[in-house]
Structures are given as structure tokens and as C-alpha cells.
Design a protein around this nucleic acid. Sequence first.
DNA 1: GAGAGAATAGTACGAACGTGCTATTCTTGT
DNA 2: ACAAGAATAGCACGTTCGTACTATTCTCTC
Lengths: 203, 203
Amino acid sequence: MLKTKGERTRHAILDRAAALATQEGLASLSIGRLAEETGMSKSGLFAHFGSKEELQLATVDHAAAMFVAEVIAPARSAPRGVARIWALCDRMIDYSERQVFPGGCFFACTSAEFNNRPGPVRDRIEEMLRSWHSYLEHAVEQAQEAGELTTAIGARQLAFQLDAFVQSSNAQFQLFRDPVVFEDARRATRDRLESLRPTAAAA
Amino acid sequence: MLKTKGERTRHAILDRAAALATQEGLASLSIGRLAEETGMSKSGLFAHFGSKEELQLATVDHAAAMFVAEVIAPARSAPRGVARIWALCDRMIDYSERQVFPGGCFFACTSAEFNNRPGPVRDRIEEMLRSWHSYLEHAVEQAQEAGELTTAIGARQLAFQLDAFVQSSNAQFQLFRDPVVFEDARRATRDRLESLRPTAAAA
DNA sequence: GAGAGAATAGTACGAACGTGCTATTCTTGT
DNA sequence: ACAAGAATAGCACGTTCGTACTATTCTCTC
């Protein structure tokens, strides 16, 4: 666990901050609001970070660690190939559906919020999403190399489509609150992967 | 055009407000900031709306009218069937690419921002997106009835997928600023529609 | 268990927020 | 062209924001 009291408090603050950021926004996340949520004084909380931007950066890092634990790590233990692609997409949909963050995927929320606010916060969010995309694309390449998927479609293009399904279900659920979109996304993903199985045996 | 001076000013304010909302957020759009952008006094601008919420609602309505003019109306003049589906998707991608709003699709931005803020603003955004989805789904149904698309896939499911491609390109362009995603979206849309043409002639 | 340093609270500040109220300037219909 | 009324500006208010600076309380190490 976490050793010192300070680290434990910091962890608890960031848990609350990440959750709140998906509901009320990371930019408009206010120190006072967060202090009241955690039962601390404004200055006591503030001392942990030194500035609002540092708090935002720490929140992004915290959320990234949660995302990795919830989505990436489980999928990594699936065998290379289509199985891993499916694991990635399904875990991602699950992570939306279970509301690991109350306002949906942390990075979907914050990237929409910060894509026009240059600065280190935006940079870190972008980096995280970039690595998600390249990880997904890499998984597609592996499946193609293993002969489990046709190479008639580019890895990048397929990754784009799969990500689109997943992200879209997250966004639509937040707005319409109808969980059927998760089934839409799962079916779209499954059908797409199925339709791209090679017809003849590959080497 | 617009008759009175007040209407013209109001229109100009809303143009700026809608643009700004996609960059800095509709919730955090401040009266003072908007006043300075339009060269008016805070109170002079405020008098046009009476409250911040009324300003937000007017901004949503203004953006909706722009969206209809840019995307829906042109597509409506395409012939029913696959041509109209394609027109809808392509116009939507275009509207993202041409940056009709500087921060990307107005409704993608604001729905992400307001999906956890209950109230009339959220309701109006939701209603707008709901009607977009149902219009797209309806276009798919028409194409299926005309025998231009197989009914092996549900209209709702296909509409989900097409919308996902379009929305995803908008979101990714805002973050990564690489216009290649628009080509990804166009190709994904084209391929999907192509793959669903009926094999045998329909009645 | 006592001393040192970390952790938290208290208070104050200037700025910006939304929104009243009043005054002034400009438009418009006659 | 002039009155009536719309449009805009000026100013003041209570809040909340981020962030200093200081004081107190708690935690860990020896």
C-alpha cells in the first residue's frame, strides 16, 4: 500500500478528482469544490500540489494508471492475435459500462475539453490517447502477421474503425443513458473482426 | 436579412459564442469574455439574454441552425437511398474538416461537456443529437426499402457504425490535428456501404 | 516519548464571475 | 425631426476562484 499519510491522502484526493473531472470537467475542477468533497481545507489540499495545473497533471496521471489497470493490463494477458484485439475492445467497453469513472471514459471527457487548450495538460492527455491508438494498431498488426486477419485492410484503418465503435458507445451512453449502445459496439466490433478472417489458410 | 439593430447584434454575438463554445467550452463561456470578444460592454451584451443559461440556450439553437444549413439541408437534396446516406456522412465530415466551428463539431463538444449537467441546456443538446441519429437511421431504412442495402444488418446498427466513423474523425482531428483521419472516416464509410449492397436483385 | 518535519488549517488578497440597477446613447416609426 | 422605446454602457454587489503567507496539529524516526 501507500506508506505515508500524505501519499494516502493524495491518492484519495486524486481518486475523487479524476471522478469529478469526468462529471464537471477537468478545467473547471476547482480546488474549493474538491476540498469540500474530500472534507479537507482548501489550503490543506492545495499544499499537496502547489498549483492547479499540477493538480490537473497529477489527476491525468492517476487516471492513466487506472485506465492501464482496467483495460490494458487485462488485455495484455490475452494471447496475441484477434483474441487480444477483442480483449482490448471488450475491456474498453466494459470500463465504460461499469462506470469506472462516473462521467464515462476519463480520456474521452478530458480530450474533448482540452483539445483547444494548449499546455502540458493537453500534451499529457494527447500522449495517453496516442499510445492507446498505437497499442490497438499494434495488436491488429500482430493478428495480421499471425494470419488471423486479412491484410486487405490496413492496420491503421481497422484500428480506427474499432476505436470508433468503442468511443462512440461511451459518448452515446453518457448522453442517452441507454446501455444498448454497448451491445451495438460489441456487435459492430465482433462483426468487423469476423468479416476480416482470411478465407484461405495463411502461411 | 435581420431587421432591427438588436437582432443583428444578437446574431453576431451568437456567432462568436458558438465558435468560442467549441474552443473554451459552453459552460465556461463567460459573459465578460464574450463581451470583450465582440467589443461590447458586459451589461450591454447581457441585456440581450437576461441570464447565462438563456445565452447558452440561444447559442445551442444558433449552432443547431448552422448545423442544419451545413449538413442536413444539402443532404436532403440528394436522392433517397445510399446516395443520401453518403451525402449525410460526407457533409458531416466536411463540416468538421472545414472547421465551421473552430473547435470541431459544436454538438460533439457540448454534449461531452453537458452530459453530466442536468438542465435545459443539456436537454436541448440531447434532443438535437437524438434527431441527428434518427435522421441518419431513417436514411438507412429508406435505402434498405429501396433495395440498395441488404437488410442483414439492422438500420439502427448501421447508423451506429456510420456515425461512429464520422464522430471519431472529428474527435481525433481536434486532438491530433492530422487531417488523414477524415480520409480514414470516408474510406470506412464507403467500404461499409459498399459491403452491404445486396448480392442479388431485390424486389 | 520527544523532537523534527510533514501535513493540514486559517486567513487574506486581487481578479473574475453572474447579475442587479440606473443612466445614456442610438434607432426607428410617424 | 421628434418623441418613444430599444439598445448599450456604467457601476456596484456578493461569490468564488487560485494562490500567497502563517500557524497549528499530527506522524514518523530515533
